[in-house]
Amino acid sequence: MPEPTDNIRATGSLVCVGLNYKTTPVEVRERLAFPENVVPQAVREIRHLPGFGESVVLSTCNRVEIYAAHQLPDGKTSHDELRDYLVRHFKLQPEHAEAMVLYNLDAAEAARHLFRVVSGLDSMVLGETEIFGQVKAAYKTALDTGATGKTLNKLFQQAFTVGKRVRNDTMIQRGSTSVGSVAVDLAEKVHDLKECRVMLVGAGEMSRTCAQSLLSRGAKSIIVSNRSYDKAVELAAEMKGVAMKFDEWEHALHEVDVIISSTSAPHFVIKKDQIEQVMRRRRWQPLLIIDIAVPRDVDPAVNDIEGVYLYDIDALQAIADEGRRERERQLALCEQIIEEQLAKFGFVNA
């Protein structure tokens, strides 16, 4: 690691203390999470701790981190102060306080960590974008509360610049890493999602996830059909869709653009001749079929029909795996950008 320059020493009062999904199990994380409405009070309290002048609290389901600027004689004291604050704030029993594993980062390490967090490199799903918005919201809360100053304002602005640069200059966001997001990507390449009507045949957990992903990205409507009609009604209500009796779903096939099938039937539920008729009624409008069931619900020969695109669970999983591998390949490039930016902003020597 290069020796810090004078410029770096000027930002040496920066500290980050936190825990995340890698260091701490969810049972402990949930005990240490700051509810959204408590964060303004927390940043004020930390700012007024002896020796501290600025603070930002980032609290998500995967991490709790305090970024602060201090004038204490050494980093160790600041780490201890912030640890004690967490123990006091959450009224932790001694055994829980003892079990709490925190990372303590100073100056360049703290900046590097924030740059990695904001770029999605420290996330559970590598390259995910939600964290960027969460960091922005955390910073805004602190800013509005008056808990930030020169050091943290500069640091967070730099972090947002780095985050954008990493996303724009690399393909860390490219590809899908989960079956649900693969389903959305495929649907987007077949249809305009805003016009997309979805049908769930069977109400398994994974089909529910896929449908929710599609709806969250703007799919127009959803029909749910299940052997248990009550379950279909329940799921349809949850997704603001329409429930359909299981012996009726075939009649509505021509009206939908995406079919997600996940029944527990031991045989093919959707057959080639059935879809051929559907395609004639659809006047060749393309149809995406996602078959999540094992054993499969859809006859593979359906993929031979023009305008029909069939993906089974293995195909979806293979795409998601490739997406993850692609993101991992991008990791080195992202780290390089972060190191360049750390040098540019004077945290480390070039």
């Binding site: 990507d185 390449k189 305009d192 409008q285 195909a315 795409i319």
Partner: peptide, 23 residues
């Protein structure tokens, strides 16, 4: 090109850039 990639499950860089086949 897009139709072929969708049919053959060949999802790579170009796939993400091409518009939906319906469009």
């Amino acid at each position: 090109v897009q139709e072929r990639m969708l049919k053959q499950h060949r999802i790579h860089a170009l796939f993400y850039q091409l518009p939906p086949i319906q469009g």
